[in-house]
């Protein structure tokens, strides 16, 4: 198949950047989207041009490193699918495809399609954990946890930290990411001990990083590769109000 690509090229963080057009032909529809970009890069390198930088690693949808806007949709047209799991059969011969990085002031562009999502790490560092040191753990069965509870916790914990939620949010809010971690931990008995401190610190960090307000448009869940529920955000709100209400 034949494609016209319009790819965002930007030399470094300070460069203004622009869309550049590339043409590719003889593509196999069974290729993955990233393999299509590999093919383009092979051609660019041989021509002596700079290859397109893009984030990727595991290419099986779990590491959370890949992610671009494809035709204005986070991770492309398929629902709940990472960019690496998208294949060219989802496009038509002769299509023009716009490829841009996940954009947000909070995710500076390193180069081309590659972005810096370290703000997510800082949110986690500010409280996205259970404070237990190695060696302190009691027996794993000491506290039974109901099947439904642990499954719900898993649903929230499944977040891969790709940033599609922020990229697709009209407000650039990190509410889904932050709330998924808060829900995961607060659902478990082990994580309840420090719930108040956790929510306050994580929300504070989220704000300090400059992420926007959640206005509940629910676009994040639709684009989320793991289908993380927006109800996590509601739970985060609950935890926040609870912590504030019980504050001394």
């Amino acid at each position: 198949m034949k494609l016209t690509l319009k790819i965002w090229r930007q030399k470094n963080q300070t460069d203004t950047g622009s869309l550049q057009e590339y043409k590719l032909d003889q593509l196999n529809p069974h290729m993955s989207f990233l393999e299509m970009l590999d093919t383009l890069n092979e051609q660019l390198i041989i021509k002596g041009d700079d290859p397109v930088a893009f984030d990727h690693d595991c290419r099986e949808g779990i590491c959370g490193q890949c992610g671009v806007m494809i035709n204005g949709m986070a991770h492309g047209p398929l629902p709940h699918t990472t960019t690496c799991q998208l294949h060219m059969r989802s496009f038509n011969d002769g299509d023009t495809i716009y490829i841009e990085p996940f954009r947000s002031e909070i995710f500076p562009i390193r180069k081309d399609l590659s972005i810096d999502r370290s703000a997510f790490d800082r949110i986690i560092a500010s409280g996205g954990y259970i404070s237990t040191n190695t060696g302190q753990a009691p027996d794993a069965l000491a506290i039974p946890i109901a099947h439904e509870v642990v499954e719900a916790a898993f649903d929230s914990a499944a977040c891969i930290g790709c940033g599609a939620c922020v990229a697709t949010c009209k407000n650039g809010s990190a509410a889904l990411f932050t709330s998924a971690k808060i829900s995961h931990l607060v659902l478990l008995p082990q994580g309840k001990e420090e719930r108040a401190a956790r929510i306050k610190n994580m929300v504070q960090t989220m704000d300090k990083e400059g992420f926007g307000h959640c206005t509940n448009t629910e676009a994040c869940q639709v684009e989320c590769p793991q289908n993380i529920s927006v109800l996590n955000i509601a739970r985060m709100n609950y935890e926040f109000i609870r912590a504030k209400a019980l504050e001394k």
């Binding site: 319009k6 965002w8 869309l19 806007m69 035709n71 204005g72 949709m73 986070a74 716009y98 841009e100 996940f102 954009r103 947000s104 002031e105 909070i106 922020v166 990229a167 697709t168 949010c169 009209k170 407000n171 650039g172 809010s173 400059g210 992420f211 926007g212 307000h213 206005t215 509940n216 448009t217 629910e218 676009a219 639709v222 684009e223």
Partner: peptide
Amino acid sequence: NKRPAPRYQYDQRGRASKWYS
């Protein structure tokens, strides 16, 4: 929300949410 809001050259994010939202 203006500062963090993503802006794209080609934008079809609308498919994921309701216009009134």
